[in-house]
Design a protein around this nucleic acid. Structure first.
Lengths: 256, 256
DNA sequence: GTTAAATTTGGAAGAATGTGGAAGATAATG
DNA sequence: CATTATCTTCCACATTCTTCCAAATTTAAC
């Protein structure tokens, strides 16, 4: 195996795990501890990881903070809370909703309260949020847990959504441009497409930092989208452009 | 485990518990009190926690959005912990296991550590337990959350298990008599039957208070059961009777 | 296609650091 | 004030790091 390939595998291992011992990495990649040590040193040099005694740790939050489920480390909390409140206000009492994984959608879930009775999600944090409540019926998709993010992924998850239907689907993405909406995780794209197909109304919650950005995977174009909820800092020209395409754009006012 | 990882785990433990004794942390993380003391000192240095006599406390009030599950639990804790340890000892490294919902099985899960790589469950607490670990692949069944218990039930859950296979299934019940094993929740019985059908070896963890009791629903007879794990207070005559039927009965010694 | 140079890899020896426990000092509790 | 628990400080031991070297692999040259 090439050194570069190994290093990129170490990176993605750390993306998932946050920490890893050299021993662990050596075993996972089939290389010696010495080699891994050198690789980790190179990654540190490059600024991609930090060396610790006995291992390595992720230096910075993974490239898309969107799916990291640690509220402490999240950015744009105020904006996301505002978006959460505005988006929850769009939901009419009694509707059943699909809620995507990710911090932005989690903030919507927090604001839903007793408005909705049925919730369908692939997010462990959302499931935990409602798990104690007997006023909600929560359907959790099956699937494999993506570590650290608490998101259920894989074919089971896709299948669940392709067989369920809801009045509203609340989703998020990691980029939005004139062409459509993007996401940075390949595993999530299939799931989100199934969510979109299964919902009568599709709402995307996207904070201003994602505007004008295209990330790795194209998710859908605007024909599939009914509403976009964003915050007050979203660029006015792009908002205007979206409205021109017939999308309802809700700009969430900052919360007091 | 490396120092940084341990410290980060201490942080998230404190997020859940707000306060923790060093003893408690040492036990939860499998390190000595001395080491934990040093870690907590480092966290204080960093400004992430505050040292107190005998333990550590969170600096700021816990964020309500944290990914939460209960650290402390219910009745017969000592017995359940003993059963958990004894049952986990039965699992051979590298096997993949199905884990049932319920507190007894949760204690087994806590003791599995790195022994198993693949875990299949319908329990939210078990899923949360492993959700941060990169060393485990956790498959969560789909289904509807049964509120109080954090258990996934319903046709989706049954279907998941009827399509998956494992080396060992670890289950619990609410009653055991000469005829077989019982459970008090109708919704769980179908799921447990699917778990049994999908596993090469079936292990039941049943504490002594359940012996000689029959509860509402008959789950299975002893033809389906390979091993029963119970605690030292289980009535000797019933244990003998089970052994007479060819069941391997493991009586867990009390933990020191 | 073969040989030589350069690079990468895996491992070993001593240095550095982390870990667990013990003894006495200090603080909490009744 | 006596008793218990916890803290500090220290030490032996274990793990990991650095540095070096030989073998293996890749690249370059002929």
């Amino acid at each position: 195996m090439q050194a570069e390939e190994r290093q990129s595998k170490i990176e993605s291992y750390l993306q998932k795990a946050e920490f890893a011992t050299l021993e662990e990495l050596a075993q996972a990649l089939g290389a010696s501890v010495s080699t891994i040590r050198r690789d980790v040193a190179a990654l540190e040099e490059k600024g991609a990881a930090r060396r610790t005694h006995g291992g390595a740790r992720l230096l910075q939050a993974p490239k898309s903070d969107e799916y990291v489920f640690n509220v402490r480390d999240t950015h744009q909390v105020a904006e996301k809370e505002a978006i959460g409140a505005a988006c929850a206000a769009l939901v009419r009492p009694g509707q059943n909703v699909i809620i995507d994984a990710g911090t932005t959608c989690f903030h919507v879930a927090k604001r839903l309260d007793d408005k909705v009775a049925q919730i369908i999600t692939n997010s462990l944090p959302v499931a935990n949020l409602f798990s104690g409540s007997n006023r909600h019926e929560v359907h959790l998709s099956g699937g494999t847990i993506y570590p650290r993010l608490g998101t259920l992924v894989g074919p089971h998850a896709v299948e669940t959504f392709s067989r369920m239907h809801a009045d509203v689907a609340i989703l998020s993405g990691s980029g939005i441009s004139g062409e459509g909406i993007y996401n940075s995780h390949a595993l999530l794209v299939d799931i989100q497409r199934a969510m979109i197909a299964g919902a009568a109304q599709v709402v995307f919650c996207i904070d201003h930092t994602k505007f004008g950005r295209r990330s790795t995977f194209f998710l859908c174009d605007f024909a599939d989208v009914d509403v976009v909820v964003t915050d007050a800092l979203a660029p006015a020209d792009l908002v205007q452009e979206l409205r021109g395409k017939g999308i309802e754009v809700v700009v969430a006012p900052p919360l007091p």
